[in-house]
């Protein structure tokens, strides 16, 4: 890594190559070891398989099989089902999450809310509760024996079974919403507070009403933050693992390969097929990139910049 004597925006660069390496080195080393290497390992490992030799004697040998593991993963019905389920889960969660975070942020910053700081803390609080604990808590609230909510609803004649196969995705989405809506709301609140007051004054002088101010000023200015929140939520949905794992003993609606991550985990640790697990992990990573960049391309197309 050498200090290139060209294009020095801030005019600092010469002769400091050694210092740059010292400061950047440790992070890059760890990044390579614990981020890049595992991905590379998975990519390579997904192209091999372990076959026990002839009579099953001796150690299994590693055989190059090209894309066989991918073909096998994508022709395993439970895995394909879990991919579809994940897609459906995203379709449920992303609008819920963005809508809730945006709604709460706009309400808090509408100038009509009292004690906005208290509300901000209350909404943000669940972010500190680990996903596992959140799933445990909501698990108790999803079974009639311990749930005051379900008992109350039953009292007025409404029978809810959140963990039935029709509603279980919503039940899981609710746990994610509870944990992260406040965090996403804070991102949007921070962006709203960065809007210069003159814009609102100008709008008010021009006779813009509340809705017009939201539609013409706030939403366009919030656009980058809304995109950020959406991308984070999409990536978050692809991580889905803990919640179904914790809720599984409570319901028959969740099978052991409920999400792609669970399927990969089971392949690796229950069935001992690390190569197939690697292929599954790579498929999830590719989905993450396709979804994130696909969304970014979609919103950055010229025609869509209207709002």
């Amino acid at each position: 890594m050498t200090a290139a004597p060209v294009a020095r925006r801030r005019g600092r660069a010469q002769r400091h190559g050694g210092a740059a390496v010292t400061l950047i080195g440790p992070f890059v080393l760890f990044f390579l070891a614990f981020f890049v290497a595992p991905i590379g390992y998975a990519l390579v490992d997904s192209l091999f398989t372990r076959r026990s030799s002839g009579l099953g004697l001796g150690p299994p040998e590693r055989v190059f099989v090209a894309l066989d593991n991918y073909v096998q993963a994508l022709s395993t019905p439970v895995f394909v089902e879990s991919l579809g389920r994940l897609l459906l889960f995203s379709v449920i969660l992303v609008p819920m999450m963005v809508g809730t975070a945006l709604g709460l942020a706009l309400l808090l910053e509408s100038g009509k809310a009292r004690f906005p700081r208290v509300f901000r803390v209350v909404f943000f609080m669940p972010y500190g509760v680990p996903g596992v604990i959140a799933a445990l808590l909501w698990g108790f609230l999803y079974i009639p024996a311990t749930s005051p909510v379900l008992q109350g609803l039953r009292g007025v004649g409404i029978d809810l079974t959140p963990l039935s196969s029709d509603t279980v995705l919503f039940a899981i989405a609710n746990i994610a919403l509870w944990g992260f809506a406040g965090y996403n709301m804070l991102i949007l609140v921070a962006a709203l507070q960065a809007v210069p007051a003159e814009l609102y004054e100008a709008a008010s002088i021009d006779g813009a009403g509340e809705w017009q101010t939201i539609w013409r000023i706030k939403l366009p200015l919030l656009r980058p933050s809304i995109i950020l929140v959406t991308v984070f939520t999409i990536i978050g949905t692809l991580q889905l693992f803990v919640e179904p794992l914790i809720l599984r003993p409570l319901t028959t609606a969740i099978n052991s390969d409920f999400t792609p991550n669970l399927a990969a985990y089971n392949q690796a640790f229950s069935y001992g097929n690390a190569n197939l697990a690697a292929a599954m992990a790579v498929i999830v990573a590719v989905m993450a990139f396709v979804a994130s960049f696909g969304f970014l391309r979609l919103v950055n197309r010229k025609g869509n910049r209207a709002w």
Binding site: I39, A278, A281
Partner: peptide
């Protein structure tokens, strides 16, 4: 952008 779950197994 990389899901942490994808890193953990490998």
């Amino acid at each position: 952008l990389m899901p942490a779950t994808v890193i953990a197994l490998p």
